[in-house]
């Protein structure tokens, strides 16, 4: 183990993380630190390693080497997805993945923060508080009148919202969002930005996004990934004027 002083005080700490698939390095010595309560946007061309980075943090992919620490000390590379989720890291996928056969309310109920042990789940009965919480989130994501509809019958944008709603239900300390506004209309995008800014008040949020308007609207610190490592980091304006970033985005 490395000396964990630099990790202290961070909520997410990645250092020297390398992942390769059949010789192709999806992540190459990636290092990234996210502070508690911080909102961070991650941009980068296709194949830069954005999704792989999320896979590593959430336990879907084990890194070949490198450290991934949560809350300054918890080694995430030793835990599986469920354990990491229960630590307080939530994730929204690029492609909305809601449970299509279940109703909107049931989707939210599954995400509810509570004991997720098998027997506890079997004998689970929602308290009135928990029911109120579901109702409140339904209101926040604007799906109150669709609560008992199977999630499979929602529109694409509504599914995105439902997934964000599920993240809200989980009440996590860190949220990882992979292209949350892909496929949304401008109005929906604006609403989502507001919602995210609201959420980010009391937790850390990492957003991967292509939509530069949306990134600007979030107004957060930007990390640019390229070929599996960090190319530039800073406020959007600074990053946008970085000649290496321009080169990567506009071609050589």
């Amino acid at each position: 183990m490395l000396d964990d002083r630099p990790a202290q005080g961070s909520i997410l700490y990645l250092d020297g993380v390398t992942v390769s698939f059949d010789g192709f390095k999806a992540l190459n010595e990636l290092s990234l630190i996210v502070a508690p309560g911080e909102m961070r946007t991650v941009i980068g061309p296709n194949g830069a390693g954005k999704t792989t980075m999320m896979d590593v943090i959430t336990g879907k992919t084990r890194p070949d080497k490198g450290d991934v620490l949560f809350d300054g000390s918890v080694d995430l590379t030793r835990l599986d997805e469920a354990q990491i989720a229960n630590l307080g890291i939530g994730r929204k996928f690029q492609k909305p993945t809601v449970f299509e056969m279940l109703t909107v309310a049931e989707n939210l109920e599954l995400a509810l923060k509570c004991d997720r042990g098998t027997l506890a789940t079997l004998f689970f009965m929602a308290t009135s508080e928990q029911r109120d919480r579901v109702a409140a989130v339904l209101g926040t994501i604007g799906l109150r009148d669709r609560a008992s509809l199977p999630a499979g019958r929602l529109s694409h944008g509504q599914k995105q919202w439902l997934e964000i709603g599920m993240l809200l239900m989980q009440d996590q300390r860190v949220l990882l969002l992979d292209e949350p506004v892909a496929g949304m209309t401008d109005a929906e995008t604006e609403q989502t930005a507001e919602l995210l800014l609201e959420i980010a008040r009391d937790r850390s949020v990492v957003v991967v996004e292509h939509d530069m308007e949306f990134v600007r609207r979030l107004g957060a610190r930007v990390t640019v990934l390229h070929e599996g490592s960090v190319l530039a980091e800073g406020p959007l304006e600074t990053v946008q004027n970085d000649h290496r970033v321009i080169e990567v985005y506009l071609g050589r």
């Binding site: 997805e81 469920a82 989720a85 993945t97 449970f99 997720r116 989980q170």
Partner: peptide, 16 residues
């Protein structure tokens, strides 16, 4: 049923 639909998503929600 959620596992039947999308098993990996269930794991990310914290269920084993």
């Amino acid at each position: 049923m959620a596992i039947r639909d999308a098993e990996s998503r269930v794991r990310f929600l914290g269920y084993s």
